[in-house]
Design a protein around this nucleic acid. Structure first.
Lengths: 332, 332
DNA sequence: GTGAAAGCGCTAACAT
DNA sequence: ATGTTAGCGCTTTCAC
């Protein structure tokens, strides 16, 4: 059975399609009597307005739809962010298209192209490593863009990030204060902006204590829990193994903690907090960031752009918090 | 600056809009020469086809968009499912609109109405407690629906679930085999189908051992980690406290594990596995289900429906796996 | 308060 | 190989 249209409703109610349009969209100029007859026909036929057709003709531009493009929707961090974005959108009567990029520039382009082809009003983007020049033309066409978690190189748009470098520096400073001098760095691909920042923070802290960075203790490119576990094993097999670890995201932290036992005496600080992180042994300290705040802030920025804000692009930096666990506990 | 249309491209390339349409959509009947000129104009103007307008006119029906409606996108379980669905959709060149219901029937209706107004080809639905009669008319209009995780009462659609009852029964049987007789049940709202099933499995196991259900040991309506922690505290304050716990979802399990210490001697089995669950103490056994398989299976069913499969609705039941950890470890 | 005509951006069907 | 006409489902505009 085909979906009924306004014409069908009009016929059933004995009025013109235009009157149905007005009634269905709650516009003035429909007498209570006709409105009732229209509503009756609507219910009987199970009519629902086709918003795609509507948006095509409406003078008020926009589709009340935004696109959310993240690295990996399955990652709890982005999942929390996505939920927060969705809540803000829902509050505005806006829908959310989602896409994961896997950090592949090619998939990012495909997803974004499909989104803009659907005329999304805006894009909330966790940019991949690749360039983003291809966004220029959609933006001139009216698609608003806001970056979250990482900036997009060479793209003048609002950006919401956290103080990655300072957070990492504080984490490593904490380890140094515990007397550690051989602190390993376990990170994801160096191409990712957050990873470069966190690495810089690691170096900052070491430098402040006059400790040279030992390349043997620095591992990049850890893309999974098993990568991290393998890197840890390699580090511990070193002649001078590290006595403390700094892990730069939740996946790596989990990989490392999964490979450590209660008997292992290493101090670990990880970027990102997660449920039950406080119940592990050896104890795990974390640099905690707030994905919900990240998502909500970015969504607000995007919506104010969609609402017509044409001021210069802003950069919002949210703060991280060091949570020390185990002996030497401090709080913040 | 306004978005260019086919007319603009046609003018720039010195051809008719129809030729642009053919060229842009890769249809035959365009000479290489004109195709090149069109492509040139497209690039210069930054033209992108408006797929909403396109879908309006196309004979091939459909928008290549599906709607995913889950309880809570931030829950790691649904996040994994969502990612899996998105991957399947991406493979088919299909986009995904997401919405969380919070298990509120009203929000579910709003989200679904907004999705169908956008002419989604299908709906992947984790139904709320409420009724779903309102789906009848969209379905007659051609919107395909598949339920995941839970069935929708009184709705004849494909459904993908796990063997909740058997999984719960096996979990509790394991605890009984360890010699426990006072096994507490900590569950979410009883209105949720999975919870009723899991509770039935709990009773099955007890009954098989001739143990009557002790109402004092059964707690429903635990909706957060703190609810679970509070319920646990109440249980332990009982004159005859439980010696083992069965927790019926990841949130409750985390709440309980967060409140227990290594010194606590209780056996715990939880429904749902999660990262590092194997590193906790006291040890945590789990009934593990596979959210990725759940999502992928449901997506496959939905797409075959969208592709025209009109056979009778199917019910697919995936299997859970008991993972025993700590002393008494077995494997499956 | 209601309706007829035109057109949003695109494509099916029929020309040429 | 290319163009013309009509119309998808809706809303704008302007009549009455």
């Amino acid at each position: 059975m085909k979906r009924p249209t306004m014409k069908d409703v009009a016929r059933a109610a004995g009025v013109s399609p235009m009157t149905v349009s007005r009634a269905v969209s709650g516009e003035p100029g429909v007498s209570p009597g006709t409105a009732a007859r229209v509503e009756q026909a609507v219910r009987q036929l199970g009519y629902q307005r086709n918003d795609n057709a509507r948006n095509l003709r409406r003078k008020i531009p926009g589709t009340s739809t935004i696109g959310l493009v993240v690295d990996d929707l399955a990652n709890p961090f982005y999942a929390l962010m996505a939920r927060s974005v969705e809540d803000e959108a829902h509050r505005r009567g806006c829908l959310v298209l989602v896409g994961s990029t896997n950090d592949e520039p090619r998939r990012e382009r495909e997803v974004i192209a499909a989104f803009t082809a659907r005329q999304v009003d805006g894009l909330l983007l966790v940019p991949t490593i690749g360039g983003h020049g291809f966004l220029k033309q959609p933006m001139e066409g009216g698609t608003r863009v806001v970056c979250v978690d990482r900036p997009a190189k060479g793209l003048a748009v609002d950006t919401v990030t956290v103080d990655n470098r300072a957070g990492a520096e504080r984490a490593v400073r904490h380890l140094l204060a515990q007397g550690h001098t051989r602190i390993a760095y376990l990170g994801d691909r160096f191409g990712i902006w957050t990873q470069r920042e966190r690495h810089a923070g690691y170096r900052d802290a070491l430098a402040a204590h006059g400790i040279p960075e030992d390349p043997a203790l620095v591992r990049h490119d850890l893309r999974s829990r098993s990568d991290a576990a393998a890197a840890l094993a390699a580090l511990r097999a070193l002649p001078g193994p590290p006595t403390a670890l700094f892990t730069t995201n939740d996946v790596i932290t989990m990989g490392v903690m999964g490979a450590l036992g209660p008997a292992d005496r290493v101090d670990v600080v990880g970027f990102d907090d997660f449920p039950l992180a406080d119940r592990l042994s050896p104890p795990l300290s974390v640099v905690s960031q707030d994905p919900v705040a990240l998502g909500a802030t970015a969504a607000h920025l995007l919506f104010s752009r969609i609402d017509g804000d044409r001021s210069a692009p802003r950069s919002v930096v949210l703060l991280t918090r060091l949570i020390v666990r185990g002996p030497g506990q401090r709080g913040s």
